[in-house]
Amino acid sequence: MAFISCIKEQDIPTDLLPPASEFDKIEALDTLKAFGFVKGHISGALYDMYRLVHTAIQNWLKHREEWEYWNEKSLRQIAKIFPWSWHNNRTV
């Protein structure tokens, strides 16, 4: 949840989430869906975090002084997933 609170709350692909086994990702997302924190798209490849939950987690991280840590961690993950825009990796 902390990772997702540092990125846009809509259309989150599962490939963007921090490294974990596919089973762990599915289990975590199913748990978040069961508690009503996120919802999945019909295609099953994208997820949305509800805006109120997104804002609440951001405020909680700021209160605990973890906001900068999670922003840096999220930025590193995004940089790893989305490489530089060279011609040979344009589809990514």
Rank of each mutant, 00 (worst) to 15 (best):
25 K>Q: 04
27 E>R: 12
16 L>P: 02
26 I>W: 03
19 P>R: 08
47 Y>V: 10
37 F>R: 11
2 A>I: 00
51 R>P: 03
30 D>T: 05
11 D>E: 11
55 T>V: 15
76 R>H: 11
23 F>M: 13
88 N>M: 10
6 C>G: 02
46 L>Y: 13
45 A>L: 15
39 K>T: 10
51 R>S: 11
80 K>R: 12
10 Q>R: 13
69 Y>A: 12
34 A>V: 03
43 S>K: 02
21 S>P: 01
26 I>E: 11
10 Q>L: 13
40 G>R: 07
75 L>W: 09
16 L>M: 03
42 I>E: 15
86 W>V: 10
38 V>G: 04
5 S>T: 00
48 D>Y: 01
46 L>A: 11
28 A>W: 01
17 L>M: 02
52 L>E: 14
20 A>F: 06
92 V>M: 15
80 K>S: 12
64 R>C: 14
91 T>K: 14
69 Y>T: 11
39 K>H: 08
72 E>N: 10
25 K>Y: 00
41 H>E: 09
71 N>H: 07
90 R>K: 12
63 H>P: 03
13 P>F: 02
72 E>T: 09
41 H>D: 13
86 W>Q: 09
63 H>M: 14
2 A>L: 02
76 R>S: 14
3 F>V: 07
88 N>R: 08
19 P>D: 10
92 V>D: 12
86 W>K: 12
86 W>C: 10
11 D>G: 12
18 P>K: 02
17 L>S: 01
44 G>E: 05
18 P>W: 00
34 A>Y: 06
9 E>H: 09
41 H>L: 11
14 T>V: 10
64 R>H: 06
16 L>Y: 01
68 E>C: 05
14 T>I: 14
77 Q>M: 08
35 F>W: 06
66 E>A: 09
89 N>Q: 14
71 N>K: 07
68 E>T: 09
33 K>Q: 11
59 N>R: 13
61 L>W: 00
55 T>A: 14
57 I>V: 14
86 W>Y: 10
10 Q>A: 12
43 S>G: 03
51 R>L: 08
2 A>G: 00
38 V>C: 05
1 M>D: 06
88 N>T: 09
9 E>M: 08
12 I>D: 04
22 E>P: 05
26 I>G: 08
33 K>N: 09
